[in-house]
Amino acid sequence: MCTTCGCGHDEMKIEGVSVHAHEHIHADGTRHSHAHDHRGPHGHGDDHDHTHEHPGQEHHGHAQAAAQGVEQARLVRLEQAILAKNDRFAAANRARFAEAGVLALNLVSSPGAGKTSLLVKTIEKMRGRRPLAVIEGDQETRLDAERIRATGAPAIQINTGKGCHLDAHAVGHALDELPLSRGMVLFIENVGNLVCPAAFDLGEAAKVVILSVTEGEDKPFKYPDMFRAAKLMLINKVDLLPFVDFDVAAALSAARRVNPFLETIQISAKTGVGFEAWLSWIEKGAVAVGG
């Protein structure tokens, strides 16, 4: 376990390297090693000093030293949110994005809804307009980051091992490897899963939930927390609508029932339908964060 920031998830890897190993890989794919001093706050700036601060720990409860030498049962009041630590890391990431003027979007969906395909197409269409970067979450493979790098955009892969979601701490470490620049749009592709990522704030400006027409239109009712937490829903693979029974109106009404404020765009990562609306939604967000 990392005693500096307390991360106990040793199986979390960034570009195949344990979050606290001595080897690092950069967003363009180059790799090198350096010593990792675990006594100070860790993180990796341009000079590879460990400069990024993990958020401070709050102190709750009252120490009541038990009478000397006597083992005494007592109560320790904690009243702490179980995800307090994640929330502190998320707040630190959010502050970093705000300071850098970066729009961070957290893309969530069931496995295979088309997150990576959408990103590849989005990068192609946005090329030259704004700096772009991608953090890819996957349990085991690095395939998605390779698909993104093939477009020329920098990408960092986080492997969560058995973990079924990204957490704010791992994203913070990935950020150390990604140079942020003003006006940048950072896409974070979460692990394909509509349950857990709802609870783990990464510090993003918005969650974008992707529902593909090869799924059921009742997904919003089955995963209400995610659809409630999202700001935008992309209904993807609309090129397949003629071949499936997916009822778009029913999906929209389920989504609005769960979240009346949810914005929606129908899109196809294959044909490019709907990208105008999607790109202008992104542009609006990027301008709003001062980029």
Binding site: V76, L78, L83, K85, H165, D167, F200
Partner: peptide
């Protein structure tokens, strides 16, 4: 597996509290 992450987060908070409040 969500529940496992939460349980591990609980463990982290307890270990932090143990250090702070000196219980074993």
């Amino acid at each position: 597996m969500h529940e496992m992450s939460l349980a591990l987060a609980v463990r982290d908070l307890i270990e932090e509290a143990a250090e702070r409040e000196k219980f074993a």
